[in-house]
Design a protein around this nucleic acid. Structure first.
Length: 887
RNA sequence: GGGCGUGUAGCUCAGCGGAAGAGCACCCGGUUUACACCCGGGUGGUCGCAGGUUCGAACCCUGCCGCGCCCACCA
């Protein structure tokens, strides 16, 4: 008997896994050893992911933990697969969001940014960035993110700022950036322009008021939800074909309260069916009206300032827009001009995505990107397959947006951000100053005070972080990135910008595939957000259950593009799983499992050994398929992290632990050459299983794998290769048979309420379908797992013994008076009922002539087998029932 | 108004043309020497509704109903 001395490492594994003891030191060790640092000089193929940069202001929430888990899993697996893996970390300066946060801080001390002045304020924000950013980096370490810390970037770094200026100038020179006076979305609280996508629409209750303009024959009724804007009306529009108003077109009518005369114009845009078919036109405060005004040469009359207070001279001057709405309505009512007020009137109202203030459309001079050609290129990249969106169902969204995009307002009236690289001269000159150019000096020259939209710099992220506009070696080697992992909520905010800029500047698209994930929701399906108060700091759960548990729980719920429910129970379950892995590996170590030497040849292995190796081979293939998809099957698109997690969980727990470990105890306890073979298989199974799990649960697998193999680190171990030769159908059938036998006997015991400790004498009785020799194979295993005594293969059921029928085989048990006859009779009757129902349903199917003709032969064959099995089952059960003692 | 998705066990979700699944919850039984963060057994579903295609439908088609999300210059 060859007993391997207990592994010294195993002595260090206590019966419970305590994540807090191992996670921190392991992470530091990984970083020190440089595992996460990508080598630009290696000859490995590159695999690159740039992190969606979190806002410096915040801290990472559950959505980040989720996203990072997915990215880390991809990166760790590729690293194991022999790629030069680069996961580039960094943060976003998040212009408006950060500025708001710092302003709010200042407001506590009753200070405004204007009190500080621009320079001091920006210094303050940098200071804030330093404090806040550190927190985020700490969180990433706790999560186990295998990012390359030597390449950390920030959107306001010098290099990235150069990229911003460079692309600005190129776009300007190409005529794709221009400055114009347009109607833009204005946030009266943030005092800045915002882009279309920074406006959130919600159905708000307002009131629709009908107003009478003009007098007598000139009278015309218009309707509005924003009464105060009438102060800025410079026309009324009707449809050209509208008979009702034809006589008025071209006439001037009087605008109430102001006494101004405004023209009636005919415009196709007006829907004659809607309301009265006449529209008041306020070109300076409504995008539609602005367009109408442009077409008919109407005056643009601004009536509000940047805080949305009325500037039109008169009694309303200085009133806030909402005060003015009431005041103007009152005044008009006094003049008898209010025809009708309809309330409530629900209509879509735009809000600032940052502060929820109602957005005011406002005419103002801003910088824009002419997106048409860029957006077209971004659309084409997906259309022609250079970029895939995963899951594919998201593509219509992409096209719908990219094909209908409005020009992008990029200037912001803020202080925190990339300052617009444009100088204005004393005589109205405009000079865009590139990265390597000197700004003009001299009397009257001044730089544009505004900064750029924060998405302008994040749009450059996949290449600015690698050194662009310089042609660095990193850029050459790691661009384009390999995949973009992000939430579907920022498909347009961010992904579209990166696509447009990447194709424009590089010109390869920045990634060949966009893997979209869903939002993390709480157990009731609510989106986690501050306003709902259901936000959980990932660190709380990491402290309590370990980073691996959190990661595994998140991964387990991840189905491409769909939202992930999250509740503490899920994490608890995942923690239990890490503990299960811990103890299972601990068992392997205590049993002397080894990874040294070749696996024994198949003929020296038990069927259980061959079975687990066969299953393992299948699992390796399934995991690869879930990660990578299947080129032959368009429905398998890959990125199925949930599938990976569920496959491995089920395999590890229900197959390795529940069956293989239990069966392996027999040879191991018995010793001998069979024990050596099983120890080697056990070692192999855990070696491979831990490597497969490492991308999802890096810490516990590292601790266990190094203990098991005594090798350096699973981080740099090879990813398991599929092993088709290990597939063994016969072993799977044998094991299936064993499981059936054991499960049926256990169920019988449980139903008979036989104590688990009682070892029943039993006999396996072969029948036509199962030879004695075949049954012999299972005797020791069945005896051990089903807790039977003196088990043997016999040729009949001894008198007075009960029997359990397992698909063709009888197991006779000596209950010696422990039988509950009534319970047994009920059990048999129920079983007969079920078998009879099965038999008749199958018979009906076979009796159907078209089934025999049309169904494939194997299906028919299978159905026939089912029928004969069902008949045999009924006969056998009936005989058993008859054999039961009368009472 | 357009687009996309979704409705399967009490809960959260897999399955997407050939005998209804998992995790959690629940019930029963367990000091089985890796693990009670465990082990064994069990209850629970006309797969939203109504039609259709098919030998066969949770799965394909049509229509309805419910829910969710995205887009939209509905005065």
């Amino acid at each position: 008997m060859t007993t391997t001395a207990p592994d010294p490492d195993s002595q260090q594994l206590p019966p419970q896994y305590t994540p807090a003891d191992v996670e921190g030191p392991l992470y530091e060790r990984w970083v020190e050893r440089g595992y996460f640092t990508a080598d630009v000089d290696s000859d490995k193929p590159p695999f690159t992911i740039v992190i969606p940069p979190p806002n410096v202001t915040g801290s990472l929430h559950m959505g980040h933990a989720f996203e990072h888990t997915l990215m880390d899993a991809l990166v760790r697996r590729k690293r194991m697969q022999g790629y030069e893996a680069l996961w580039l970390p960094g943060m976003d300066h998040a212009g408006i969001a950060t500025q708001n946060v710092v302003e709010r801080e200042l407001a506590i001390g009753d200070i405004s940014r204007h009190d500080l002045g621009r320079e001091a304020f920006v210094d303050k924000v940098w200071q804030w960035k330093g404090e806040s950013g550190g927190r985020i980096l700490g969180q990433m370490r706790r999560l186990g993110d295998s990012v390359d810390w030597t390449r950390e970037r920030f959107t306001m770094d010098e290099g990235l700022s150069r990229a911003v200026v460079t692309i600005f100038k190129r776009l300007y020179d190409d005529g794709l950036i221009y400055r114009a006076e347009r109607i833009i979305n204005w946030c009266p609280r943030c005092h800045t322009a915002i882009s279309d996508i920074e406006v959130e629409h919600s159905d708000d209750e307002g009131e629709l008021v009908s107003l009478r303009y003009g007098d007598g024959a000139d009278e015309i009724v218009v309707a509005t939800t924003r009464v105060e804007t009438m102060l800025g009306d410079t026309g009324v529009a009707v449809h050209p074909d509208d008979e009702r108003y034809r006589h008025l077109v071209g006439r001037q009518i009087e605008l109430p309260l102001t006494g101004r005369l405004i023209p009636v114009v005919a415009d196709e845009h007006v829907d004659p069916e809607f309301g009265t078919g006449a529209v008041k036109v306020t070109p300076a405060h409504d995008p539609n009206d602005f367009a109408i005004g442009q077409r008919h040469g109407l005056q643009n009359l601004s009536i509000m300032d940047e805080a949305a207070a009325i500037t039109a001279p008169g009694p309303f001057e200085g009133l806030d827009r909402f005060e003015a709405r009431t005041a103007v309505t009152e005044a008009l009512r006094g003049l008898g001009r209010v025809v009708a007020e309809k309330r409530p009137y629900v209509h879509s109202v735009g809000h600032c995505s940052r502060c929820k203030t109602v957005v005011e459309p406002r005419l103002s001079l801003q910088w824009f990107v002419a997106v048409a050609p860029l957006a077209k290129a971004a659309g084409d990249a997906v259309r022609d397959g250079r970029v895939k969106i995963n899951p594919r169902e998201m593509e219509p969204r992409w096209f719908g947006w990219v094909d209908n995009m409005h020009d992008w307002t990029i200037s912001r009236q803020l202080w925190w951000g990339h300052r617009i690289p444009v100088w204005y001269g004393p005589d109205g000159e405009v000079r865009v100053v590139g990265a390597d150019e000197e700004p003009p000096t001299g009397e009257g020259w001044a730089q544009d005070p505004d900064v750029l939209d924060t998405w302008f710099s994040s749009g450059l992220w996949p290449f600015s972080t690698l050194g662009w506009p310089d042609r660095t070696r990193d850029l050459e080697r790691f661009y384009p990135t390999s995949v973009l992992v992000t939430g579907y909520d920022i498909l347009f905010f961010w992904v579209a910008r990166m696509m447009m800029f990447g194709i424009y500047a590089m010109p390869e698209p920045p990634f060949p595939v966009v893997a979209l994930h869903g939002m993390v929701r709480d157990s009731r399906g609510k989106k986690m957000s501050k306003s709902f108060g259901n936000v959980i700091d990932p660190l709380d759960w990491i402290d309590k259950y370990g980073a691996d548990a959190l990661r595994f729980a998140l991964a387990r719920g991840a189905n491409p593009g769909s939202d992930v429910p999250m509740a503490e129970e899920w994490v608890e379950g995942a923690r239990n799983f890490t503990n299960k892995l811990w103890n299972a590996t601990r068992f392997a170590l205590l049993s002397g499992a080894t990874v040294e030497g070749d696996l024994p040849p198949a003929d020296r292995l038990s069927y259980a050994d061959r079975w687990i190796l066969s299953r393992l081979a299948t699992v390796v293939a399934e995991v690869d398929r879930a990660f990578d998809g299947d080129p032959a099957d368009p429905s398998a698109e890959g990125f199925e992290f949930g599938e990976v997690a569920r496959t491995l969980y089920g395999f590890a727990w229900n197959e390795v632990c529940d069956w293989y470990i239990e069966v392996s105890k027999l040879p191991i306890n018995a010793g001998g050459p069979e024990a050596d073979a099983t120890r080697r298989v056990l070692g192999h199974v855990f070696d491979v299983l831990l490597r497969l799990l490492h991308p999802l649960v890096p810490f516990v697998t590292e601790r266990l794998w190094t203990a098991l193999t005594r090798r350096e680190s699973v981080v740099v171990a090879d990813w398991p290769a599929p092993d088709a030769a290990a597939r063994d159908e016969q072993a799977e059938r044998d094991m299936g048979r064993l499981q059936e036998l054991v499960t049926e006997v256990r169920r019988f015991r449980s139903e008979q309420q036989i104590k688990p400790g009682v070892r029943l004498p039993a006999v396996l009785v072969p029948d036509a379908g199962s030879a004695a020799a075949e049954l012999e194979r299972h005797v020791p295993q069945v005896a051990a797992l089903a807790r039977l005594a003196d088990l043997r293969v016999g040729d009949g059921v001894p008198d007075g013994w009960q029997e359990v029928v397992v698909a063709g085989t009888r197991v006779a048990l000596d209950l010696s008076g422990t039988v509950d006859v009534r319970a047994e009779r009920a059990r048999l009757r129920k079983a007969i009922e079920l078998a009879t129902a099965e038999e008749s349903s199958v018979a009906a199917k076979l009796a159907n002539p078209s089934f025999a003709e049309r169904a494939p032969a194997p299906v028919v064959e299978k159905t026939r087998t089912r029928q004969s099995e069902a008949r045999a089952e009924i006969d056998r059960l009936t005989a058993l029932l008859d054999a039961l003692p009368a009472q």
